[in-house]
Design a protein around this nucleic acid. Structure first.
Length: 822
RNA sequence: GCCCGGGUGGCGGAAUGGCAGACGCGGAGGACUCAAAAUCCUUUGCUCGAGAGGGCGUGCGGGUUCGAGUCCCGCCCCGGGCACCA
């Protein structure tokens, strides 16, 4: 398509100027109101794909808009530059991940510059910068000192494809790896964990204070998974001085407990098992230990498979409610890692317990009257308690309260809140990550590397493979060291940290990248934090967004970030994904539509406008056959602006006519509309409003009657200012042509609508008869109910329908509508 | 199973309980042109009608209301999250 100007030349000119002049560099002591605009730190995967373009188009709009609103906008950029793809690529190519990563960073950097997105490049931060690693490791050690980082042996998720352990958050619901898609295995390993569970309650409660998409908040609440209940003792029948401790959210159903179940990992299991039952129990344990988490917890097996997956231990415990002795089973549907690893089983009111009881011939005692016609199955709903001693006749809520009080008195019970959230496993058996700064000494045990020796850097001559052995463990020169405490020979930790640790505090370093003697100066960071607007993909709803929240809370608590708000991201916006043929567009799927091809045709401005216009920013974008046409349409809109700005056949007249005034009014309405839409993330309708404004101005200027000079000038200048955050190159170019030698459009202030011009002198009022539109009347916006009614009744159209009759009722909603009911 | 979103023309999508379909794409017709492209103008939910005009229309079924895409109840379908979590 032939464009009326050289798109490429214009865009390159402005990109060079923004970069050379450091237009968007901002200092910490800037006196304007501060605004921290942040796009999620990208993994450097090479040139930008459409997902990046969408992200940085939105981010750049926020930066330029807030700047025009008079704020000092912090707009940093950097890279989440550790990670598996670089390591795997290096193994394949026989090179070093750093070479690969540096090249990809360079590509992504030029991509965002070619998009016209502007940053304060002095503040660039990237994970594998030794300067950043030093403080990432220092934070780890502070966590260790505070007891927030600990080493423990635990069953962990092992991904064979990635040859490393994973955090729970990186395992999909179906038991596959979030990255490779491989089925994750269970392994018992000694690993490093961060105590995120200490913050479960605060992480949950503070969600309420965030201006985040409801969807993301819900996902985090689900992930944290709070449940309120009671933990109490079931005394052992063979030794009532000791007891099996269980957790339940339904203490009210206590009289219905007909058996108890322990997890295969339960510490008391060995002593509960009798000689007669030993064989069956051992078989069960063996099977459970081999099963993957997926097989073990697959709900599709509920019922049918349960017989094979439980065994009687031979022991009994006392139900403290009824005083009866009930059998203890071991079953893999009870998890060792949740609650106490043991449950009371109430088959009448719990589906799993019911299915298990059916298979094992255990008795079922109802404690809640199910509604009529419920049948034989378990009932877990509301109802009146029966067979429940002191709880008979109570509803569920009252009975829960009564039961909890009873247990606290008689069964060493205590009200307890349990969370689904587990501690964050941060060890990774890979090379391309930040080494964990720990030394193991036979005498002194786990010893932190002294801060002055940080950063611990991996040597370059490490043999990387995917054996599952940490590559650093095979490098004797790295591994062997001396104990910082006693000086005897010792060994370095060979694992690296999860890359999500890097992305958990990078925004703090952005706010103060210059401090040399610590991770950041809290006083400097406090000038910018919390982030005013965070923008990123929905895929980080749990992972990154939960970890970063934990980090900041922990950093404040251990004294590294005094005075900072405990939540990092005040407002979050999650953009939709780009889909091609229904699946996510991504490099790994090989279905990318590269942005570069558009730069010579529609330009970065055209592509940006497309991403703004195609639909609500939060929605997914389907890239279809029609997409190319829509992109063309956006470029056409820019062309029309260019042409209007150069329109020289316009006939001008001296005095402002009513038509000219109406155009001015439309201009001010557009200012109001676009401003409101930008605040509300309704970018698609903001673009539509600009299109309408252009249509209005264009038609008016081309009329035979001509236009008023100063009205046209004002209209064009406003249009360019409104367009400046969306299509920065063209608006800068046209502004410069119209105002040579003056400050650029992005240095102009955001236009303010004049309320007197926005208000309408007359509006169209709809007159309905029996709900059908029969007439439209021009009325004043302030028309009274009576005047509106009489005007409606007087209109010829209505008279025709009335035919002399008196209406039964008249509903007047001036100035919008009058409805006459006959 | 539970919890969030969502379902509107041929398509992407607009619509504080008040004219459904803004804006754009696509289509149709026209102007300009030797012709085409580009540009500009007109038109475009479906349907009956020559026309004036009428009827039907926001996943389905009910309800509230003078009035429902919007609110309420019950379903269906699509996307996402959680899930043997006691």
């Amino acid at each position: 398509m032939a464009r009326p100007f050289d798109v490429s030349a214009v865009e390159k000119k402005w990109q060079a100027r923004w970069l050379d002049e450091g237009t968007y560099e901002v200092d910490n002591d800037d006196e304007r109101e501060r605004f921290f605009a942040l796009c999620m730190y990208p993994y450097p995967s090479g040139t930008a794909h459409q997902g990046h373009i969408r992200n940085y188009t939105f981010g750049d709009l926020v930066v330029r808009y807030q700047t025009m609103r008079g704020k000092a906008v912090l707009t940093p950029f950097g890279f989440d530059s550790f990670g598996l793809p670089a390591e795997n690529a290096a193994i394949k190519a026989g090179s070093h991940p750093r070479l690969f990563t540096d090249a990809r960073m360079g590509e992504l950097k030029s991509s965002v510059r070619r998009l016209g997105a502007v940053y304060d490049w002095r503040r660039e931060v990237f994970s594998h910068d030794p300067n950043y690693m030093k403080w990432a490791q220092a934070i780890f050690l502070e966590f260790f000192k505070a007891g927030l980082a600990y080493r423990a042996e635990a069953p962990v998720n092992w991904c064979p494809g990635c040859a490393t352990v994973l955090a729970n958050e990186q395992v999909n619901a179906d038991g596959t790896c979030d990255r490779s898609g491989d089925l994750v295995q269970r392994r018992n390993l000694e690993q490093w964990f961060f105590k995120i569970t200490d913050y479960a309650e605060e992480l949950l409660n503070d969600i309420d204070t965030l201006e985040w998409p409801e969807r993301v908040k819900t996902m985090q609440r689900n992930w944290i998974g709070r449940s309120e209940g009671v933990e109490f003792d079931l005394p052992l029948a063979f030794d009532p001085s000791r007891a099996l401790r269980v957790f339940t959210t339904r203490p009210d159903t206590g009289f219905g407990v007909t058996y108890a179940v322990v997890a295969p990992e339960h510490p008391m299991l060995a002593e509960l098992v009798t000689e007669d039952e030993r064989e069956g129990v051992e078989r069960l344990i063996e099977r459970a230990s081999q099963a993957s988490e997926l097989e073990r917890t697959a709900s599709s097996d509920a019922g049918a498979g349960l017989d094979k997956r439980g065994a009687f231990t031979g022991s009994f415990v006392i139900n403290p409610f009824s005083g009866e002795s009930v059998p203890v089973y071991v079953a893999d549907y009870v998890l060792g890692t949740y609650g106490t690893g043991a449950i009371m089983a109430v088959p009448a009111e719990d589906e799993r317990d019911f299915a298990f009881a059916q298979v094992h011939g255990l008795s079922v005692v109802r404690t809640i009257e199910p509604p009529a016609g419920h049948g034989e199955g378990p009932y877990s709903g509301e109802g009146t308690h029966i067979n429940s001693g002191f709880m008979d006749g109570m509803d569920v809520a009252h009975a829960k309260e009564a039961a909890a009080a009873f247990l606290e008195e008689h069964a060493k019970g205590v009200r307890k809140v349990n969370y689904r959230l587990r501690d964050w496993l941060v060890s990774r058996q890979r090379f391309w990550g930040c080494p964990i700064p720990i030394v193991y000494c036979d005498v002194d045990g786990i010893v932190p590397v002294p801060v002055e020796q940080l950063p611990v850097l991996a040597p370059d001559d490490v043999v990387m493979d995917k054996s599952g052995q940490s590559p650093l463990a095979t490098h004797e020169g790295f591994r062997n060291t001396t104990c910082p405490t006693c000086g005897r020979p010792a060994r370095r930790e060979a694992d690296t940290m999860d890359t999500f640790t890097d992305s958990s505090w990078y925004f703090l370093r952005y706010a103060d990248p210059f401090t040399a003697d610590r991770a950041f100066d809290p006083a400097q960071v406090a000038k910018w934090m919390p982030v005013d607007q965070y923008i990123g993909g929905i895929e980080h709803a749990i992972l990154h967004l939960l970890y970063a929240r934990f980090y900041l809370k922990a950093l404040v608590d251990i004294g590294l970030a005094p005075g900072l708000a405990r939540e990092p991201f005040k407002r979050l916006f999650t953009q939709g994904m780009i889909r091609l043929d229904g699946s996510k567009m991504s490099k790994s799927k090989g279905n990318l539509i590269a942005p570069e091809k558009y730069y010579d045709t529609v330009g970065a401005d055209g592509l940006r406008l497309f991403h703004l216009f195609v639909g609500p920013p939060a929605d997914d974008v389907d890239w279809t056959a029609q997409t190319e046409d829509i992109i063309e349409g956006c470029a056409r809109f820019l062309d029309r602006i260019y042409r209007l700005s150069h329109y020289d056949e316009c006939f001008f007249h001296e005095d402002e006519t009513p038509d000219d005034l109406e155009v001015r009014r439309e201009v001010h309405r557009a200012i109001a509309k676009v401003s409101a839409d930008l605040e509300a993330w309704s970018y698609n309708t903001a673009v539509a409003a600009l299109m309408e404004l252009l249509n209005t101005i264009s038609k008016w200027a081309r009329r035979a009657e001509g236009a008023h000079r100063s009205t046209l000038d004002e209209s064009l200048d406003v249009l360019l200012r409104l367009l400046a955050p969306m299509a920065p190159h063209l608006s800068a170019e046209l502004w410069e042509q119209r105002h040579p030698g003056e400050a650029g459009v992005h240095a102009q202030s955001w236009p303010v609508a004049d309320p007197a011009l926005v208000a309408r002198s007359s509006v169209v009022m709809v007159v309905q008869v029996n709900g059908k539109v029969r007439a439209r009347l021009d009325v004043s916006p302030e028309v009274s109910e009576d005047d509106a009614t009489s005007a409606a009744l007087a209109s010829a159209e209505v008279q025709k329908f009335l035919a002399g009759a008196t209406p039964q009722r008249v509903v007047a909603r001036p100035p919008r509508l009058v409805n006459i009911i006959l």
